[in-house]
């Protein structure tokens, strides 16, 4: 784990870290990775990856509409909105 990797990860997570924080997180992540690293010693060649630790399967929902229009509440609770839309900084490709 080096500073550069932490910078990449924090960029992807849109987190702004100052130098001190970056150093601390680098060290923390280093420790975590070392801690789980011993798992690498186990041979998992013939093991199917586990999708979910609960030994259950997904319930399925019937396809009928059962949801109210809560537009006003949702828009009211957003940082910025007009009567129809959520307003966000300009994002244009």
């Amino acid at each position: 784990m080096d500073n550069k990797t932490v910078e990449t990860i924090s960029y992807l997570a849109r987190l702004k870290l100052d130098k001190d924080k970056k150093d601390k997180i680098t060290k923390d992540l280093e420790n975590i990775i070392n801690f789980v690293d011993e798992l690498q010693d186990i041979n998992t060649d013939d093991v199917t990856p586990l999708a979910n630790p609960l030994e259950k399967t997904a319930p399925k929902r019937k396809d009928f509409v059962n949801s109210k229009d809560r537009k006003e509440v949702f828009l009211e609770n957003s940082p910025q909105s007009d009567q129809d839309y959520f307003i966000v900084p300009k994002v244009v490709e």
């Binding site: 129809d84 839309y85 307003i87 966000v88 300009k90």
Partner: peptide
């Protein structure tokens, strides 16, 4: 919709 903002539906 706005000159300096985008809106989301």
């Amino acid at each position: 919709a706005y000159p300096d903002k985008s809106v989301i539906d």
